[in-house]
Amino acid sequence: MTTWRDVEAAVPEFAERVQALFDAHKHKTIATLRADGSPRISGIEVTFDDGELTFGSMPNARKGCDLRRDPRFALHSATVDPVEGAEADWPGEAKIAGRAIPSGAITDGPDGELFRTEIAEVVLTHLNDAATLLVIQWWTPTHGLRTVERE
């Protein structure tokens, strides 16, 4: 099982940048799969704690039901638009995909179910220093970190 700690150990600067994008805003978006296989998008909050990426689901929430039936998920950081004239300052956006593992009840805070994550892919999209190219970096446990630049 690949945890956030594994990502941090393999590619520390990349992991730090991805986590900073997730930590910059409270609300993120998660995609899960409905019983019929169609996608569902929901708002969510996530926590990076002691090498684990975790999130919760309120009692009887559809996303929790989705994840118990099919644990695959895709998580997206909050998105902000580049400021015209200051595009090089755009922090970018991050995505994490994998499997959610039910881990019992949430012990502090509101009632709900806690999920830990098994990470399959981490993606960071940003601009190069000159703000002339889109840079897509992605990491997987199998292939490590790869980078593509696009105009």
Rank of each mutant, 00 (worst) to 15 (best):
A24W: 09
F14A: 07
W139P: 00
I101S: 02
D49E: 13
G51N: 03
E45K: 03
V135S: 03
P91G: 02
R62T: 10
I101F: 05
S42V: 01
K28E: 13
P71R: 07
G98P: 01
G51R: 04
S38G: 05
A9R: 14
D81E: 15
D111C: 07
R68T: 12
A86R: 13
A105S: 10
W139K: 02
R99W: 08
P82N: 13
W138T: 05
A9V: 06
S103P: 00
E52I: 05
W90C: 06
H126A: 11
G109F: 06
A31K: 02
F14I: 08
G37L: 07
N128R: 09
G112V: 07
W90T: 04
R62I: 10
E151L: 10
G112Y: 03
G51Q: 02
E93G: 03
A94I: 01
G51P: 02
E118S: 13
A97D: 06
A94H: 00
A24F: 11
E113N: 09
A105M: 07
T140A: 03
D36P: 02
T2W: 10
T2I: 09
E16S: 14
F73I: 13
T147M: 11
P39T: 07
E113L: 14
R5C: 07
V148F: 11
D81C: 13
M1G: 05
G104T: 04
P39D: 03
H25L: 15
I119F: 04
K26L: 14
S103E: 05
D50H: 12
A105W: 05
P71W: 05
E118G: 10
G64V: 02
A74P: 08
D108M: 14
I119K: 01
L134V: 14
R62C: 02
H126S: 11
L67Q: 03
E121I: 05
E84I: 12
P82W: 09
A10H: 06
P82H: 12
A78P: 03
A120I: 02
L127P: 01
P102S: 08
D81Y: 15
G112I: 04
F115W: 08
N60G: 07
D50F: 05
T54I: 06
T32V: 01
V18F: 03
R17H: 15
A130K: 15
P102L: 06
V7I: 12
G92D: 01
A97K: 06
P39H: 04
E84Q: 12
W138R: 12
G104P: 04
K95M: 12
G98F: 00
L33Y: 07
P59Q: 09
G64E: 01
T117C: 12
T47P: 00
M1S: 05
S38K: 08
R17M: 11
V18N: 00
T142D: 15
R40K: 06
P141G: 03
R62S: 10
A100G: 03
R116W: 04
G98S: 03
F14T: 08
D23I: 09
G37M: 09
A97V: 04
L134G: 06
D23R: 15
T29K: 10
L124M: 07
T32F: 00
P12S: 13
A20C: 14
T132K: 15
V135R: 06
R146A: 14
R68G: 08
E87D: 14
T3P: 02
R34Y: 05
A35Y: 03
A94C: 03
A78Q: 14
I44A: 01
L53Y: 00
